[in-house]
Computed example of a mutant assay.
Amino acid sequence: MFKTMRLSVVWAGVALGVVGGCGDAEAPEAGVARSFDGRALSASRWSTSASMGSARGLHTATLLDSGLVLVAGGTTGAGTSGLTRSAELYNPYSDTWSGTGSLNVPHQNFAGVRLDSGKVLVAGGQDGSGAPSSSIAELYDPASGVWSLTGALVVPRSFFTLTRLDSGKVLASGGMTPAGGLSTSAELYDPATGTWSLVGSLSTSRFSHTATQLYSGEVLVLGGLGTVTNTVELFSPATNTWRQVRPMPVTRAGHTATRLFSGYVMVAGGFDPGTRGNPVLSSVDVYDPYNDRWFSVPPMNRPRRDHTAVLLYSGALLVTGGTNGTTLETSTEVYDPQSNRWFTIDHMPAPRTGHTATLLDTGAVQLIGSTGEGVSPPSSMRFTP
């Protein structure tokens, strides 16, 4: 029932010409990031959900084909002392948690993605061995609940991104390397062979950046730390090459970058590493891939960094938590692309930063874990539109 609902939303978007486009698709009206439902979600609400088996942060949360959420690895305490191999499954239909197979090695500050097969790939991060970055990659099989090792990354890395491509392969970009340096390298994982291969190089080394797949199949990489720059790069899977596009108006790290139904990419908040004092930002810039240009939309009501942004089935963008630079946020905002406005809605039951936010098949959003001022209690929270 829930998968049918999700597909019906996608088809509604296709009918309006905003979903499933490509690089030469008709561009939406200049300066407007449209959606087919611009409701402000005034009746939305937060609720506290069942507690995990243990508190954790710096983990991954991946929605499975079954609708369950796989939460893996991370840390249960400060630094690497609390690194864990444990993994849990959240059932949103019964609001219950259950244990599942443990990772072969602990990971934190790593990345994970669901493959076309339904398995989950996690890779890299820090494993507690003392090295800044790991090359170990693992596969989770939902049918058996077991993790198995797969091919190792060519370049060990942490604070990097994983992006599943239309081909089914997975792109890893940037990150920190074992020597504590930064990488311009990128590599592709081929699920058919279980191996990684280097594929071009970024022009700028960066970590803690964002990578967003466009409707064209290309991947937009921007922001982050390392070399302080506003450069923006596109990876083309057709040629396995990188190219620079129009730079961002400001430098950002700790931001979010979300593809809207229009195909535009909304880059919100974060902090400016290129300005003295690294001010936390409320500003929002939008990238138009059809015309290689940037335009600004109204700022968020609160400056925030290390927050999450989730595109709801309605086309609205939900932004949660983060920090304003001095305190952790409980505030929640929704951007309505149809009216080009931000709306402040109900506050979360507790502040979160560095958490994960997963869009469920039901349309609700599940917030799990926390970092920042220590790891949060094991409870999770749900936003119901």
Rank of each mutant, 00 (worst) to 15 (best):
G17I: 09
W11R: 09
S42N: 09
T60F: 02
V19T: 06
R34N: 00
D65N: 15
A50K: 05
M5I: 08
A33Y: 00
S66H: 09
G21Q: 15
G53D: 01
A27H: 02
D24N: 01
D24Q: 00
T4D: 15
F36Y: 15
F36S: 11
G20L: 08
L63I: 08
S47F: 12
G17V: 05
L41D: 10
G21C: 11
R45L: 10
W11P: 00
A15W: 14
M52P: 00
G57M: 00
V18I: 15
R39N: 12
G23H: 08
R34H: 02
L64E: 11
S54I: 00
S66Y: 10
G13L: 15
P28I: 04
T4F: 15
T48R: 08
L64D: 07
E26C: 09
P28F: 02
G23V: 02
L41I: 07
E29N: 04
S51F: 03
S42L: 15
T4I: 14
L58M: 06
S51V: 02
L7W: 06
D65I: 12
D37P: 01
L16C: 13
V18E: 13
G38A: 05
A43K: 14
S8Q: 14
G21A: 07
W11F: 13
G17N: 04
V32M: 06
V32L: 14
G21F: 11
L7R: 10
M5W: 11
D65M: 15
V14L: 12
G31L: 07
A27C: 02
E29V: 03
S66M: 11
A33H: 04
L58Q: 06
A15Y: 10
S49T: 13
S51K: 03
A12K: 13
A43M: 13
M52H: 03
G38V: 01
S35I: 10
E29M: 08
T60D: 01
